[in-house]
């Protein structure tokens, strides 16, 4: 795997502007992929639980059809998709050495979109749990719904914390090799969360309204 000029690992490579960091990236990026895949397994089990509970576990509580409001789900989808694109711009700014300012700018835009997503999600949860009387303990469907969707939300929130930590590191160390490698892993994490969201908006919200 060593003597080749191809990118050594998938994802946004640093080949163009920083050959040394590019070589150092291979093991840490592959290791992070292993984490991402194990994280995906966690979501898969939550999805499976939800699939069973959403049809058999509604009890007397409101079901998906009465509860879900697709308008805010659509806005959340657009916010997260936009943030995936802006993080791509941050990765490009880093790859092509356009300076820490450009990287931080695009990451701030990404972070704001991500925070907007979380804001809408929290307001959805409030709407469901408090206003419409459908808290997690009301039925098996609701327990598994909040477990799945909030686990995703928690991931987004921790990615935002990670982003803030990266801003501090950029301010202190500049775009050093270690900082670049950490931003690359954050980028993979962020893109993967959007993949999980595609599953959530399709299999939870759209399926719930159609059924």
């Amino acid at each position: 795997m060593s003597a080749q000029t191809d990118p050594l690992y998938p994802g946004m490579t640093l080949e163009a502007a920083d050959r040394d960091s590019h070589d150092a990236a291979e093991p840490v990026i592959f290791g992070f992929w292993i984490f991402l895949m194990s994280d995906l397994l966690l979501f898969a089990v939550l999805f499976a639980t939800y699939a069973a509970m959403s049809t058999h576990g509604q009890a007397d509580a409101p079901g998906p059809r009465e509860l879900f409001e697709l308008g805010s789900i659509f806005i959340e989808t657009m916010l997260l998709l936009g943030s995936t694109f802006t993080f791509g711009m941050a990765s490009l700014a880093m790859k092509y050495d356009q300076g820490a300012g450009a990287v931080v700018f695009w990451m701030v835009v990404t972070g704001l979109l991500g925070a907007g997503f979380l804001g809408f999600e929290i307001s959805d949860f409030y709407q469901f749990a408090v206003i419409e009387g459908a808290p997690p303990q009301a039925s098996g469907f609701l327990s598994s719904f909040y477990a799945l969707v909030a686990t995703h939300g928690l991931h987004v929130a921790s990615a935002l914390v990670w982003m803030v930590v990266m801003f501090v590191q950029i301010a202190v160390f500049g775009l050093s090799r270690e900082v670049k490698l950490r931003i690359m892993r954050l980028a993979l994490f962020w893109h993967m969360l959007d993949v999980v969201w595609v599953g959530i908006f399709t299999f939870v919200f759209l399926f719930g309204v159609v059924q």
Binding site: M1, Q4, D6, P7, L8, Y9, P10, G11, M12, F30, W33, I34, M37, T84, G88, L188, H191, M192, D194, V195, V198, G199
Partner: peptide, 25 residues
């Protein structure tokens, strides 16, 4: 859409150098 995300955002392809990660996925 998930395949699109993996291809364009996570840059997973069929190239030889990506095989390890592709197998993992």
């Amino acid at each position: 859409q998930i395949v699109v995300h993996f291809h364009y955002f996570l840059h997973i392809g069929l190239e030889k150098s990506h095989r390890d990660d592709l197998y993992l996925i």
